[in-house]
């Protein structure tokens, strides 16, 4: 097992002299071009109480194994790039502190239900194409630019109808946790369904009929069985399970 020895360094916040604790980081390594199965590579990494999973992955990448493939960007749970399975549960690596895991072994794997590109990096092609299929934009005939008014005013109550669903950062954690996604390759998925609700609930939008037609499909909204795992793992409080059940209310006639 490769080990990072704590030392004084300006390069990386982990490598400081006061570091006393360390964890074993197990990274799933898999290259679909050359490997038939994934293998776990272990590293011993020093940690502080504020160290995140992304911090230790980048420390390993910097000091021990530069070949580790990981996607990341903002490091503050805003970009949705660093979603992965951490100790068996989908989470954002930048948003998960080692101290929260209550374990000396941290196992990181690529998110389930997404094709693996390499190691921890997964392919979002199908994810984004499904998202686009649900028309994630305001649909109406007139426009703010050409209309009489400069903008379409909304009351705070009207905004709250969809606000939390607009916080989606498209990290894919909900799709990774969904038990239906685990078996149904054509299922629309909680992310896209929650976004369909986001626009339908927006009183500026007139695309409800179009979107309900898309989701009223054998691999659409009826495949959700309200397991709630999507909401359980969402790092932004979007609560896709709620959006999906409210969306189903439109199709069942409970909501107008």
């Amino acid at each position: 097992m490769a080990t990072i020895t704590p030392k004084l360094s300006d390069e990386f916040p982990l490598t400081i002299a006061s570091s006393t604790n360390s964890v074993t980081l197990r990274i799933s390594k898999f290259n679909p071009k050359t490997d038939s199965t994934a293998t776990f590579v272990e590293f011993k990494v020093p940690v502080q109480k504020w160290t995140t999973v992304l911090d230790i992955i980048l420390a390993v990448k910097q000091h021990l194994d530069p070949s580790v493939a990981v996607r990341y960007s903002c490091r503050q749970a805003s970009c949705g790039s660093c979603g992965m399975k951490i100790n068996g549960k989908p989470a954002l690596a930048c948003y998960t502190k080692i101290s929260e895991l209550n374990s000396n072994v941290v196992t990181v794997e690529p998110m389930n239900n997404f094709p693996i590109l390499r190691d921890l990096a997964v392919d979002f092609t199908q994810f984004f194409s499904t998202h686009k299929k649900l028309k994630p934009y305001i649909i109406r005939d007139d426009s703010e630019v050409t209309g009489d008014t400069k903008e379409f005013l909304q009351t705070p109550k009207e905004v709250e109808e969809y606000l939390q669903f607009s916080y989606c950062i498209k990290c894919g954690l909900c799709n990774s946790a969904c038990p239906t996604m685990a078996t149904d390759t054509s299922f629309i998925g909680p992310q896209a369904l929650a976004q369909a609700y986001r626009y339908i609930a927006d009183n500026r939008d007139n695309g409800k009929k179009d979107r309900l037609k898309i989701i009223d499909d054998s691999h659409g909204i009826w495949r959700c069985h309200f397991a709630g795992s999507c909401s359980q793992v969402c790092p932004k409080g979007v609560d896709p399970a709620m959006g999906i059940q409210l969306l189903r209310g439109y199709l069942l006639g409970f909501r107008k």
Binding site: P32, L117, P179, M181, F226, S229, Q232
Partner: peptide, 30 residues
Amino acid sequence: MERQSNREGIKGWLNPGRYGLERVAYWLMR
């Protein structure tokens, strides 16, 4: 580019405890 789908399959229904009581209920329902 070659890819592996990495779907959990039916084994994704197992170990329901990691996602809370609602996932346990889903598993028991199945």
